[in-house]
């Protein structure tokens, strides 16, 4: 007779896999990528392709020749990191910088900790922040949307709404004049503004979020906590003095908030495990983002906010445990 398989229960599996999750994230990023190509043209394509290829290549090389293990590039996580890194870069950035960013993201951010699942920080953000600090000029010159579709390095540049805001407040311009310079809410929602490759089109990022929620790749907790806390915090500020602080909607639609909340903060290995922890983590990101945006030196703070909260994840995991079954009644009796 044929040898029967014996294993401990359970004997069936959901069929979920690392690949399904990773490629699911890639699919969820397609609308944002399409929007990026629509607004920034060939620049967006060149940056994304370079970044993905570089990330995959670095992961392969490190895995093969330094760690001497079978390559892991097929699991799709390097592709996700590559796209996310590209989404965080201006579309007129020189190729060399993208490759440096990819090397830092994969090498320092991910593989030095042991690869997928072990990295305490979001690799793409490690790459992005490294570039932002090392090459501040190249990293903060943003091509104008639509106008510069057919140019890459020589694209005409402009400011992002957030930098217009920061600039205006520093130079002491009247708030109404500053507001007149930034695009309308509808434009912001659709993505007609300067910014990094993937962060501009709010509507496209929202589609990605819905896709990931439907496919159960992520849960709602982190994105909702980040966005909600930003809305509440900026809303309070706006109510206190609407002539000094922009409206919550402006904060929601500008900069990398949506990209960060939906795709960066939800990175599996650098986010907490329990839902209560996820909410604390999300609120932390939201609050730090607003602090940097409103009072910090940088116009945008989501990248730093996520990296700072990443550092707290082990602590959050230690103290924020899921609610145990049976605590409900015990609490009632006590």
């Amino acid at each position: 007779m044929k040898r029967l398989i014996v294993s401990p229960s359970p004997h069936v599996h959901s069929g979920d896999s690392v690949k399904k999750n990773m490629y699911g994230v890639v699919i969820a990023m397609i609308p944002a990528l399409a929007a990026s190509v629509w607004f920034f043209g060939i620049g967006a394509l060149v940056v994304t392709l370079t970044s993905v290829l570089a990330c995959v290549l670095f992961e392969h090389l490190i895995q093969r020749f330094i760690l001497k293990k079978p390559t892991t590039i097929t699991d799709g996580s390097a592709i996700v990191t590559g796209i996310l890194l590209a989404f965080n870069l201006p579309t007129n950035i020189p190729l060399a910088l993208i490759i440096i960013g990819a090397a830092v993201a994969i090498g320092m951010g991910k593989m030095s900790f042991g690869g997928l699942g072990q990295n305490p920080f979001n690799p793409a953000l490690v790459g992005r922040v490294f570039l932002l600090i090392s090459y501040p000029v190249q990293m903060t010159s943003w091509p104008k949307p639509i106008d510069s579709r057919f140019s890459y390095l020589d694209a005409e540049t402009g400011a992002t709404p957030l930098s217009i805001m920061k600039e205006g407040l520093i130079t002491g311009k009247p708030f109404s004049e500053v507001l007149a310079e930034v695009p309308s809410y509808l434009e912001l929602f659709l993505g007609v503004m300067g910014g990094s490759a993937g962060e501009i089109a709010g509507v496209a990022l929202m589609i990605g979020l819905i896709y990931m929620l439907v496919k159960k790749i992520i849960t709602w907790h982190i994105p909702v906590a980040v966005i909600g806390s930003v809305l509440v915090f900026t809303g309070v500020l706006h109510l206190v003095d609407s002539n000094a602080y922009a409206s919550p909607l402006f904060h929601l639609l500008t900069g990398g908030l949506l990209l960060g909340a939906i795709f960066m903060a939800t990175d599996y290995s650098s986010s907490p495990m329990a839902t209560s922890g996820m909410i604390l983590y999300g609120v932390g990101i939201g609050v730090i983002t607003v602090l940097i945006r409103v009072w910090g030196a940088y116009p945008e703070g989501i990248s730093f906010a996520i990296l700072i909260m990443n550092a707290f994840v082990p602590l959050i995991d230690k103290y924020m445990k899921p609610k145990h079954f049976g605590e409900k009644v015990a609490a009632k009796k006590a």
């Binding site: 398989i5 294993s7 599996h13 979920d16 896999s17 690392v18 999750n21 699991d75 996580s77 690869g115 997928l116 699942g117 072990q118 849960t219 599996y268 290995s269 986010s271 907490p272 495990m273 329990a274 839902t275 996820m278 445990k321 899921p322 609610k323 145990h324 079954f325 049976g326 605590e327």
Partner: peptide, 23 residues
Amino acid sequence: SRGKTEYCIRCSKCVSACPMGLS
């Protein structure tokens, strides 16, 4: 047949699936 065991990616799906609220 069981699939190949891979590293934990910390997706937290086991935590949300556990009916006893364990990790």
